[in-house]
């Protein structure tokens, strides 16, 4: 979402007057760079300019239209071919929708991989945030009138009040420029979709579940990365306990082993020590002994939860 906002901001910036000699080309460039997301028009934000129907960008004052005046481009004479309109519509509406859905699905898969239950937990928050966005998009789609679409045909009347002072000269823009821009945006959008699909495929393969330690073996990613997202429930529970203790001001030092860390916690946070000691006792055979973990997983998760509660209490009591 941050990326969307950023791209939108860039696009608006590009529309500002006086961005230099590249000004007229910048919207096209940004739209292509922004994987087609420059087309996103959220309610409440100004409409973006790159469209098959009206690629209107303004020349610098003095460049055309006389001193102090400006020129605004209209679609080329005869309009764009049909494909430009179709791609434009896809980029404007279908792509953001698909991206939002993919992001939500990805978050769900990643959340499941981390061992969080599917319908509760922190990872649900982004999903809840994504839902209003989806609703907004549906609203936008529903509110669109027939007059806006249809790439090849629609050459609308010039806007009644150009935004700058001075005389404005309305001319038909170069046909090729608009087509190339749309094509570039389309290509980069496809590239983005492919990347997202690859990310989803990766999240699906590494989604974890009830399996033991061997499950991550077929994982085609570096071992250090696998370590950061353990597939085993006991290991995840231990990791969550570590994160909770880190939040309570007791982070494990990178060179510290689990037993050494347990001793340090015993001295610094005695209330948590019995829980951590038990969790460590469950964790060690799973982590270093290759032990299957089915019986211990629930106990480990319960211990991690209790450590989390203890740490939250400690954190809330801290000055």
């Amino acid at each position: 979402m941050g990326l969307l906002g950023l791209l939108h901001g860039f696009h608006l910036l590009a529309r500002v007057e006086g961005v230099g000699p590249l000004g007229p080309l910048l919207p096209l460039f940004l739209a292509a760079l922004g994987f087609g997301l420059g087309h996103l028009s959220l309610p409440g934000l100004p409409a973006l300019s790159l469209s098959a129907r009206a690629p209107t960008f303004r020349a610098s004052p003095g460049e055309a239209g006389g001193p102090g005046g400006s020129v605004a481009y209209l679609p080329p004479e005869g309009g764009f071919p049909l494909w430009v309109g179709v791609v434009d519509r896809l980029l404007a509406h279908a792509l953001p929708l698909a991206l939002a859905l993919l992001l939500a699905l990805g978050l769900l898969l990643l959340g499941r991989r981390r061992g969080l239950p599917l319908f509760r937990g922190l990872h649900l928050l982004p999903l809840l945030l994504a839902l209003p966005l989806l609703l907004g998009l549906f609203f936008l789609l529903g509110s669109l009138g027939g007059g806006e679409g249809a790439g090849g045909q629609g050459v609308g009347p010039p806007p009644s009040s150009p935004p700058s002072q001075g005389p404005v000269e309305w001319v038909h823009g170069p046909r090729a420029l608009g087509e190339v821009g749309i094509a570039l945006a389309g290509l980069s959008a496809l590239f983005t979709l492919a990347l997202l699909l690859a990310l989803l495929a990766w999240a699906w393969r590494g989604r974890g579940g009830e399996g033991g330690e061997g499950e991550g073996a077929a994982f085609p990613f570096p071992r250090a990365f696998q370590r950061s997202l353990p597939a085993s429930r006991v290991r995840r529970a231990y990791l969550e306990a570590l994160e909770a203790l880190k939040g309570a001001g007791l982070p494990r030092r990178p060179a510290e082993g689990p037993v050494e860390y347990g001793k340090r916690v015993e001295a610094a946070f005695p209330e948590a020590h019995p829980l951590l000691a038990r969790l460590t006792a469950l964790y060690l055979p799973v982590r270093y002994g290759g032990k299957a973990e089915r019986e211990e997983a629930e106990e480990a998760e319960a211990l991690a939860l209790r450590i989390l509660e203890l740490c939250s209490t400690k954190g809330s009591k801290a000055p």
Partner: peptide, 12 residues
């Protein structure tokens, strides 16, 4: 060396 090299534990 023992202080500098990270031990293989979950990265918490």
């Amino acid at each position: 060396a023992l202080e500098a090299v990270p031990a293989p534990v979950e990265a918490g």
